[in-house]
Amino acid sequence: MNLQAILSSPVVRLMGYFLLLTTVIAFVAVTVPWFPDLLVPSAPGADPFPGASDAMGPSAAEIMTSVTRTALLGFLALLAALAFTVPVVWIYTVIMRQEGYERSFVRLLASLPIVVAGVVQVVRGDLALAFALAGIVAAVRFRTTVKDLQDAVFAFAAIAVGLATGTGNFTLAGAISTVFCLLAYALWRMNVGDVGPSLALSHGGVALAEALVPGESHKAVVIGNEDEVEPVHAEDLPELAHYVERLADYVRGDALRKKKKYNTLLLVYTESPEEAGEFVEPILDDHARRWVLVDEIHRNGSGLVALEYLLRLKKKVKVGKMIDHLACGEDALCRAAELKPIKGLRRRLT
C-alpha cells in the first residue's frame, strides 16, 4: 500500500482530525487560564461553565459584562459542538455513499448538535424553563420519520455531542465523537450483519430459490414439474457461491433506486436457454414493470439450466395468469419455474 492510499484512508483522516483538534484544545487550555474548567464535567443543576468568571480574576470580571460573558461561553459551546460533529457527519457520508443518503438529513446532522447545545445553554439547570421548553416542543410536534435505524443512531450521537458541549463537558464530547466514528466505520468495513454469499442452510433439500434468497417468510413457489427441480443441500453451497454473490450485487445496485425496485426472483428451468429466453421475456414484458436476466445457473447434477430473472411485477398483475403463460410442464420448453420475493434480502444486504 503506497503513502497516498494510506493518507486517503478514512481512519487516518479521522485520527488526523482528532489529533489536530486535541492540539488546538491543549494550546488554548495552556494559554487561557479559565479554559481548563470547560474540559471537566459540570455538577447537576450547576453552572455549565464553572469557575470561568472567577478564573479570569477581578479585573477581568469588572471589564467583561454579563452579556459579553454569556455570548463568549455560548459561542465556545456552539463552536465545540460544530467541531466534534464534523467527523460524525463525514463518516456518515462515507458509510452511506453506496446506498445513498438525503442532503436534508446530512444538513440536519450537522446542525442538530449546535441547536441542542444552544437549548442546553438556554435552560442552564432551570427546571421550570426545561418543562416550558418540553411543552413548546410537544406543541410543535415534529413528525419526521427516520427511515433507516442507522440514521437514527447517528442522530442520537449528534444529540449526545450537543448535550456534552452544552453542559461544558468538552472532554466527554470529544470521547463520544471519537469512539462513535471509529466504531461506526469499523462495523461498516467488517460488514457486520451483512448477508454473505456462503449462507448456511437451516436444513437440506431446499429449492434453489430458497438457497439464493434465504430467510424470507414467504417460501418459494414451484411451478410445473417439481421433479425437475434439483434440491440444494449444504454441500452444494460452494458450487452456488458465485451465483449467490452475483444476485447480491444486483440487489445492492438496485437498492440505489428510490422507486420501482425489483421485488421478485424468477427461475425458469429449461434444456434450451436461448429458446426459453425468447419465449419467457415477452411474457415478462406484459407482467412486469422492469426485469433483468441476472444469470444462467448450471448445476452439476442436472441437465437443466435455470434462467435467473429479477422482476418488478406490476401492481395489478395476476401472477396466476403469468404462470399459465409460462406453460411449465414435463414436455414443455419451460420444465419448471420458481418464484420468490426478495424484499427481505434487499433490506439485509443494504
Rank of each mutant, 00 (worst) to 15 (best):
A130I: 03
M15W: 04
D249E: 04
Q4N: 14
K261W: 07
V67G: 15
Y250C: 07
A327I: 09
K259F: 00
G74D: 03
A332I: 05
M96H: 07
M190Q: 08
L163N: 11
E226D: 02
L326G: 02
R69D: 11
R103G: 13
I25Q: 14
M190L: 12
A139F: 14
K258H: 11
A234T: 13
G125K: 01
G100Y: 04
A29N: 13
L326H: 00
F131L: 12
T145I: 10
K316Y: 12
I6A: 07
M322K: 06
L293P: 06
V122W: 02
L349V: 05
V161R: 11
V192M: 10
A160F: 06
E99D: 01
V146K: 00
T171V: 06
I25G: 12
R289P: 02
E245R: 03
L76M: 12
D324Y: 13
A43W: 00
L256Q: 06
W34L: 04
P113R: 05
Y269E: 05
L345I: 11
L187A: 06
E281P: 02
I283W: 00
D148R: 13
G301E: 10
R289S: 11
S198A: 06
R252T: 11
A241P: 03
Q98F: 04
E62F: 15
L349I: 05
A26K: 13
T167V: 13
H287G: 06
E226K: 01
V280M: 01
V115W: 01
I223A: 01
K314Y: 02
L109H: 01
A5C: 01
V251Y: 01
A288S: 05
A207E: 08
E102P: 00
A71I: 15
L183V: 13
G125L: 03
L39R: 04
L345T: 12
T178E: 10
G16P: 03
V294I: 14
L208N: 07
S272R: 15
L3T: 09
A46I: 03
H242K: 08
I63M: 12
N169E: 09
T264D: 04
L349P: 06
R69T: 15
E281V: 00
V67C: 15
A207V: 10
E271P: 06
N169G: 08
T85D: 10
L183A: 14
K219F: 15
D47E: 10
V12F: 14
I63N: 04
S202F: 14
E226F: 00
V30N: 15
L129G: 08
L172R: 10
K343Y: 00
A81L: 09
P87D: 11
R290W: 00
A29I: 13
